[in-house]
Nucleic acid binder design. Sequence first.
RNA 1: GACCCCAUCGUCUAGGCAGGUCCAGGACACCAGGUUUUCAUCCUGGUAACACGGGUUCGAAUCCCGUUGGGGUCGCCA
Length: 459
Amino acid sequence: MTGGGGRRKMRFQQIEQQPEQVISMTVRTRFAPSPTGQVHIGNIRAAIYNWLFARHHGGRFLLRIEDTDRVRSTDEAVQAVLEALTWLGLEADEPPVYQSRQQAAHRAAAEQLLSSGRAYRAAKGEAGQGEVVLFRMPDHALEFTDEIKGPLRKAAADMQDFVLVRSDGTPVFHLANVVDDVAMGITHVIRGDDHIENTYRHVALYQALGAPLPRFAHLPMIVNAQGKPYSKRDGAAYVGDFRSRGFLADALFNYLVLLGWSPGDDREIMSRAEMIADFSLERVQSKAAQFDERKLAWFNGQYVRALPLATRVAACADVLRAHGIEAEPTYLAQVVDLLAERLQFITDIPTQAAYFFTEDYPVDAKAVRKRLGTAEARERLAEARAALAAAPGFTAPELEEVVRELAERRAVSVGVYIHPLRVAASGSAAGPGLFDMLAVLGRERVLARVDRSLAEPSA
RNA sequence: GACCCCAUCGUCUAGGCAGGUCCAGGACACCAGGUUUUCAUCCUGGUAACACGGGUUCGAAUCCCGUUGGGGUCGCCA
């Protein structure tokens, strides 16, 4: 059985759950996390697809907090969900629905099922736990056409009755989920494919409740390098992890959208508008996708570089401030502009550009040995120092002119001066163009650092 | 174990529903070269895949069957 092709062909041999016009009706999708912890990367991708699908069809994207597990659900987790959605720009179109507040409706549905004979009371499991309400599964096979997987079918013999209401009177996931989806008018249920088995039960529930069936789309999982479900042990697994590690929301969004979906052409970097315009469940992959943080990092670099300078400067200022560095805005803007192509993460700024802000910057010992380790190198550095000091002004073109002139005069490659100067002025062998860097650093700082280098005992 | 899902470069994928134009295209990563004072960016080139076996067909990555491999589900969790 091969992916998309087969499933799309077969779809039309099946009876549709809803008329084709469904798409022209108002599409309503929802993200329904259970607030028991941080928001997992796989869940947020489901949220993204729900959002994109709703936007594509001019419909609505809703949020439902499935907090019926009172023991494990926490307010902090609810906050985490809200923050993750806001950060990624996935605002819901209506106020969030809290499942725990819908219990009256859940109970009413159970009563309805009880009186119609589709559910029954029974003492199940260990003695002493009391009575539960069980749903009576139909005695015929159940089938539905998944928007991603194609026609799916389950024989009656492979399905058992299941609990709808616990012995303590609280509704179980299946009941609450379906009742709420009906109440919220959800037309398309887009969720992880670990829910496929549940869907048969849900289909039976919708039918028993006399509610119209939504369309279902089951997304494949996100797996790690071992092909196992992606978890915290595989590095960043939660939305908050990515955020704190310096990933941009747009970069993560773009990467995640493409992890399991493609526009059908060669585009990689896409705007939200493009994604919305082109998104379709038909093009969602049906096999699990392996998370590749290196590609995510590449996306991040692309997005960081595309940031307007002012935005990048502000973001860098925040990161620096968190590191106890208060940078003067104009100066910082020069530094950030200088580092433009070299920043893949905004959070790299403190380590990558420390020497711009403090005299206590890290020094690469290896670079010092290589570029300042010989008597000759130090002599060249001294010559360069004199040239810099004699420069008419301390702008990049002026500095470049005096140093190149010096090299010409001594008939040596200009690199002979550049490399020692770079290490003496920044402590590093890598960095922006030397003359621009020196100009931004300023005469005083540069000369002082060079003098300090010259004063240190040679290796 | 039962039931279900999945299978194109190392990874994400295009192509598959309408079989030939695919000795399989793009991106990340990797390798080489170029640009450059370094690093990064950027540019050029390269290595690299249709899981296997049958079948249908003049012709299969594309259709069918099977095998193998991977995954999911079998809770008074969600």
